[in-house]
Each structure stands twice: as C-alpha cells, then as structure tokens.
Design a protein around this nucleic acid. Sequence first.
RNA 1: GUGGGCGUAGCUCAGCUGGUAGAGCACUCGGUUGUGGUCCGAGAUGUCGCGGGUUCGAGCCCCGUCGUUCACC
Length: 411
Amino acid sequence: MSGFSFEISKSDSGSDARAGVLTTPHGTVNTPAFIPVGTKATVKSVLPESMRELGAQAILSNAYHLYLQPGPEILDSAGGLSKFMNWNGPTFTDSGGFQVLSLGVGFKKVLAMDETTFRDDDVIAENKERLAHVDDDGVTFKSHLDGSMHRFTPEFSMQVQHQIGADIMFAFDECTTLHNTRSYQEIALERTRLWAIRCLDEHQRLTQARSSKPYQALFGVIQGAQYEDLRRQAASTMGAMESSGISFDGFGIGGALNKSELGTIIGWVNQELPREKPKHLLGIGAPEDLFVGVEAGMDTFDCVLASRIARTSAVYTMEGRYNLTNTAYRTDFSPIDEECDCYTCTSYTRAYLNHLFRGKEILAATLATIHNERFIVRLVDQMRTAIINGDFAELKEEFLGRYKHRSTHAN
RNA sequence: GUGGGCGUAGCUCAGCUGGUAGAGCACUCGGUUGUGGUCCGAGAUGUCGCGGGUUCGAGCCCCGUCGUUCACC
C-alpha cells in the first residue's frame, strides 16, 4: 500500500553482504547499489539521461541546498524532485543534518578519515566563525549563499523533505566528528535520538496530511562516532524506535568514520539493527571502502568523491586511480580504462581528456564524471552479481589485489 | 638627436639605506568520502640584458654598451 518495500533475495555465506530489491513509488533499486549524488537536483555537469545510461538507479539530493535554492515549495509545485529534474526515477534526500557539521565547524576540515589526524581530546570548534549553531530544539544556519539566517528543526526538515518529495528521506540528525570529546558525543547522540522521535511524529503527520502524494520512506540515522557502546546503543534504540504508530523504514549510518575502523563500526551497528530493513552508508564511496561496507551488510551508498575528483581530473581504473592532467597522457590515445564500457571510454582518449582539462573546458568535467560514476556504479553492481553467484569473496580479493597494486605506482 | 623610465623564474612583477634572490599566475606531482565547479599540500624554475669598475661582499653604487619605451626637438 505504501509503495515502499525491501526484499532480500540472497545472503552471502562468508560475510554479512546481501542482495535485495528496494521498491519505491518511482521505481526499484537493486541492492547493493551506489547512489550518485546530485546535491542541487543535478549530478554536476551530467545529463539525467547519461546517468541512467551509465547505470545509476537513483539519485541523492540535499534538503538543505534545495531549501535555500530554489525552495521546497517550487519542488512541490513541480511534482517533486524526480520530475523536476527530469530524472523520473527513485530519489533520496539527505536531511541537512550533515550541514550542521560541515558548515558548523569549517568546511572540509573535520571529517578526518585518516587516523593520523585524529586527536581524541580535540574539542569541536565552538568559537570560530561558524555558520551553524546547534541547540536541543534545532539548528540555526547562516546561509552560505547570502548570509541570511535560517533555522532547521526535526519538524522543519521533515516538512522540507516532504515538499521536495524524494522516495527516501533521512531523519534530521547531528553529525559529529572524531574531534569531539566523548562527553559531547553522548550529548549529540541523545539529541539525535530525541530528534528522531520528532521526525517520526512529524513524518507521520505529513504522510497523512499529504495522502494524495506518493509515499515517502524515512530512514533513521545512526551516530555514535568511534565508540562501540554508543554505536550499539544508538542502533538498537533506533532499530526498535516507534512513535505515532510508525517505525523507520530503513537506516542510515552516519558520522565521521575512521577508515581503518570502518568495517568494525558498521559491523556493530549492523548487528543491532533489524536485519530485514535496508541500510544506507552515508557518504562513503571509495572503491576499497565499498567492499567493506557491502561486506558489513550495507545495501546502499552515496558519495561525492567520484564526481568531485572527476572535476579535477582524477579517474578510477581497475588498476587504481590517476590524474588525467599528468604530462604522460598528453599523447596517450588510449581510453581512460581499457576495461570500461562507459560512454567516455568508448568514445574518447586520455590525450583528448588531458587537453580538455588543461584548457579548463566544461566538457572535461562531464566526461570524467560519467566515467567515474560508471566505474563506481558498476563496481557495486559487480558486487551484487557476485553475492548472487556466491563468489563475493573472490571478487573482493581479485579487485583489491589489482587496485592496490596500481595505487602504489606512479602512473 | 636630447632627456627620462624600464630591462630580475615561462608570464606579470617585488626586492627597504649594498650582505650571494622572492610572490602571484603558469608548470610538475599528490590530496579531496551525507558536494561552496572549491580548496589544500608538496615540488621544479634564474648566467638578476651584456661588459667593466668600486667593495671583504653588487640585483642594488659608478662607467660603458645593447634592447625597449615615453617625452621633446
């Protein structure tokens, strides 16, 4: 009746990996799946048709960005995000909770994925010129676009996300970093728990008030940083949470995750969450990390990495990643990756891409993004196939053997 | 012809009263994990136009010379 469901079709014998199908009002997603990010209702520089052609099954946008521009009421009037952007397929929206962090403590400074920069007693910046301030009721933002002040509460995030109309929404949470103190993590986690209840309540109210609209699923977000007890507690609490007669349709695993502990942390969370519900690993998408995520039971992923690095010339291949701007590729007339079946690789050479990047041509971003998104989407597709065929472990070993090997070389 | 300015990294230029050269861009190579087409990091690069001179020491001072540019005849 809701139009939303998740079915697990096959489980891996050697790990927690599983293959399934996520059904939404706008179409299905075969899992595990990589969901490309189109923050502002567009995958930067790439046509929706191209995204479909390269195998994308859904697109993830951001409620904070769409709220500021063009405004959720416009998305609502347009018939929802999927139709507005001419994607006409399944969509996700992030709640804007992540922006509490990214705008709050200085963009790109705190999501330390590398343990070498980790310092346990570093306190979150509470004095700097932050664009966001958190309190128990919500978050006050200063727009990065024009400096105007805005306020997000769990209720407001739900209202915005309902207007945007994505098939899968995320609860409004407070994302912390590895730099927060343990005591702050506890405070933030409790706040996220209380906000989750408010999200469920408001979500249920809006679902009933807007019953003529397609059903939108709501995923709760699990925080807890690197602490086992906090992660397990958050997962079991959120997994069992019920309010206004409803529970979460699925879950997102969020927060800053130490790369070397990624699998361990997801593993704790996965053990506590209901097995039958879909799990989305927020913001993770490096090839080697995707194997860890799938192996730990994650069903969907989103990440800006593939498209962001593509815009500055870095591309993935089965042998590792490299930069197309390197001098060596000026006269290299082979494709980015001989084994890739994407539009870019079947039509263009490294030399041409090198030229486009050096000339700062817009097409460079388009072609490189198509390739990288195809590479990641296909990689996760291959994992799904492997799970179904019972040889996930072999795929992982084979891929990582080659990929890491190449990464240690200069070109 | 006369007078003045300028000639320093590939480009645009900094170099205080002389102590054996720097920046930005470009270039080379990394990085970017719920996206501010950004940003960050590392690196390479010079007969300081040329030739003399003064000085312990000259990109800086003096003489000459070449080039360039402006003004005036």
